[in-house]
Design a protein around this nucleic acid. Structure first.
Lengths: 336, 336
DNA sequence: CGGGTCGATGCGTTCGGCGCATCGACCCGC
DNA sequence: GCGGGTCGATGCGCCGAACGCATCGACCCG
């Protein structure tokens, strides 16, 4: 069992090891070098730091002979003497000094690569690309980013503004992992959760008589100048408002169609008319533009959904979504 | 007693065969992970690139079963699934995608580290710190740098201006590898080679009557205003000139002692007097300062030596010195 | 000149990685 | 729908590589 078996004589034939070594170093002959291993780098670094094979071996939890041999092997692989050693001293050669720095870098890189990969697999780190509609960028998205920075500091968020239709395609192609989209969102590939529902508010220019009322109704917009959403670029709001107006028999005077909410408010500021915008747009402050609630049925018609591919296996995506759903008020969300 | 005999109190030194295995598995438990090897990274990279174990194994000159096992082992070391594999397809997980980039970086770094170290050991690359006296920086040093850049493009030169005395100390402490020094330079630790010997020239202000002569003699400076070297900061030139003047019975009128040659020329430019400078100083152009040869014995009294430690084992230093000595005119050099 | 230290080396053992053969899952085409 | 083909996983035997022990040879010190 014990390896110790004292042999009487010493066999002087030492061709065996040299032959194996020769086969290993055959690559040197035809120009292709064999590569060292990280364990050999650790051997060398420990030895270079201790400048003493015995202590280095102790640090590496091994004995001195195999350590000596690993360092020798590393030197033969490199074809370079890294350490000048006598029985009295061990010193780094210039090449050894340079290689020591490189070896430390390689080992550090290997350590950090392992760590980073473990974090990514555990959902603590990684990249998340988020698509969002313009209006969700005013209020909800910033909160989402703040939440992510606080709870997932190693998450690397990429934000891309795009309309719902573009987000669907981006989700399918994998260009984004999460979409902040407007309903309806019914696709078998996607899981969705309602993350926001908010009322509509009227944006009125200073001096507008309707500012006297605390709350407006849709009837207040009948035959009045209204800045309206473009059916192409802002279909969700266009459809929502036309449906609401039709259901209530209201016919505003559409003075302009625009796509962006901040453009609408700029036109309100210019006195062109009123606009009806989601409550989140109140984050945008324009001079001479004031807001009033608008009563509708339902009273919070503007909905925002989070959508992601069911088969997206990114661990951090799961962490992120769990985080979002846990943080959002339970009544306001409706997962899957 | 052998240092590696297990002592009663040091159980940890006894590394049984089971302990290696145990430490490998135990490491995962107590938070310390075993480290992967570069060969495993190569296995993973090839597999991730081919997305096919059979082809990857072929690329690695091995068979598929050990490749599968190495990738499995890597995954167990990381504690992370890198590849989702069925019998029909192999796909990277998000963590695998991230680790692939890291693995490639590590392998590239290892390759380049080996290459760089081989270059350093062969004398093709490395760092050389050169000390030089101010005057040698005007002409000789730039040529040396140009020569080095052309023939040793991977040499990383560090240039430090210092007087001869400082260079000697810097050579002894290893702060510089090569000194460009003034004689005498007699130390057993150093090898030296004369790399330059040049005549003295007079720097005269425009209008000086001596400009009429094509060549001046030392007698031309007797009783005339002369800007002189400081004995502390420029001892070599101070001693050379005083010795020459004494030997020729000449007594100039020392109007100012300064250390730097360009300061002397500035004072000549200001009309304060003449100066005697090494020929290399003619590289410095001042308005209203013109040069004339000065006849001396010997006719090229200004000598520059290259000095380096005999025991400096830097391979590129040897290459560099060989290069310098081969390039310099054989008559002008005198190695060792 | 003998004891002590240290790296190198001989030697026997063991363990890990390899190749071969095979399994099991899955796809595809007849 | 069933057999052939593909592909990754696995069992197994073998061999080489790395380990530990013992020892050598060089060197230093008193």
């Amino acid at each position: 069992m014990n390896a110790f078996t004292p042999l009487p004589g010493k066999k002087t034939l030492a061709i065996g090891p040299n032959e194996r070594l020769a086969s290993r170093l055959q690559g040197v002959v035809d120009g292709r070098f064999p590569m060292f291993e990280l364990s050999q780098l650790r051997c060398f670094v420990a030895t270079a730091e201790e400048l003493h094979f015995g202590r280095a071996a102790q640090r590496l939890n091994m004995t001195q002979p195999p350590l000596s041999r690993q360092v020798q092997l590393l030197e033969r692989i490199l074809g370079v003497t890294l350490l000048d050693r006598t029985s009295r001293s061990v010193r780094l050669t210039p090449a050894g000094r340079a290689f020591l720095l490189e070896a430390r870098r390689i080992l550090r890189l290997a350590e950090s690569a392992a760590l980073a990969t473990r974090r990514i697999a555990s959902g603590e780190a990684g990249q998340i690309a988020i698509g969002f509609t313009a209006a969700s960028g005013y209020n909800f998205l910033p909160q989402l980013v703040i939440l992510s920075k606080a709870r997932l500091p190693n998450a690397d968020l990429t934000l891309r503004e795009m309309v719902t239709r573009e987000q669907v395609e981006a989700l399918l192609t994998g260009r984004i992992d999460i979409g902040l989209v407007r309903p309806p969102m019914e696709r078998v590939e996607f899981a969705t959760a309602r993350v926001l529902s908010e009322p509509l508010v009227a944006a009125l220019p200073t001096g507008d008589a309707r500012l006297a009322k605390a709350t407006l109704t849709l009837a207040d917009f009948d035959a009045a100048p209204l800045i309206m959403y473009s059916p192409e670029g802002a279909g969700y709001f266009y459809n929502m408002l036309t449906t609401l107006f039709d259901a209530n028999g209201v016919s505003p005077n559409y003075v302009q169609h625009v796509t962006q909410i901040h453009s609408m408010l700029a036109l309100v500021h210019a006195g062109l008319g009123a606009a009806i915008v989601p409550e989140a747009a109140m984050s945008l402050h324009f001079d001479d533009v004031q807001f009033r609630p608008v009563a509708t049925t339902p009273d919070r018609p503007v909905e925002l959904y989070m959508a992601w591919r069911k088969d997206n296996e990114s661990p951090i995506l799961q962490t992120f979504i769990d985080l979002c759903l846990a943080e959002a008020s339970p009544t306001g969300t409706d997962a899957r």
